[in-house]
Computed example of a mutant assay.
Amino acid sequence: MTRQAKYPKGVFCTRKPNGTTYWYYQRDKGKPTRGPLVRLPDFGSPEFYEALRDIARGDAPTRYNIAAMIADYKSDPQWGTKRPATIATYESALAPILQYWGEREPGEITVAHVIDLINKFAGKPSMGNMVLVMVKKLMKFAVQRGHRMDNPAREVDALYEDTDGAKPLTPAAWAALMAPECPTSVRRLAILGRATGQRISDLIRMRPADRDEDGISHTITKLRDKPHWSLLKPEEAAEIDGWGVGPATPYVLRPDGRRYDTDSMRDAWNGYIKTESGAALAGFTPHDLRATKVCDERIAGKTHQQIAAMVGMSVGMVMKYSKHIDQRLAARGGA
Rank of each mutant, 00 (worst) to 15 (best):
V133P: 01
F141D: 07
E161Q: 09
R145M: 00
L138M: 02
I109V: 15
M134I: 06
I216M: 05
Y90N: 11
V114T: 07
R199D: 05
G193N: 05
G215T: 07
Y100W: 12
I109E: 08
C182V: 00
I220V: 15
V156R: 00
P183W: 02
I97Y: 00
L223K: 14
M139C: 09
I118P: 01
S217K: 13
L132S: 06
Y100Q: 13
M206V: 10
E155M: 10
G165K: 00
R104K: 15
A158P: 06
R199S: 00
R211G: 08
C182Q: 01
Y160L: 05
T221C: 09
R207D: 04
P96H: 03
M134D: 02
A95I: 07
L138E: 02
P125E: 06
L192V: 04
V111Y: 15
I97C: 05
D150A: 13
A176K: 01
F121E: 06
I216N: 02
I191N: 10
S185P: 06
N129C: 03
A179Y: 06
G107C: 11
P96T: 04
E181K: 10
T86D: 00
L189I: 11
P84Y: 04
I204E: 00
M127V: 13
A85E: 11
A209L: 11
I97N: 02
P106W: 01
A85K: 10
T184H: 10
E105C: 15
M149N: 12
S201Y: 08
P152K: 08
L189G: 09
M149S: 15
K140C: 00
P152D: 01
A166V: 04
T184P: 02
H147A: 14
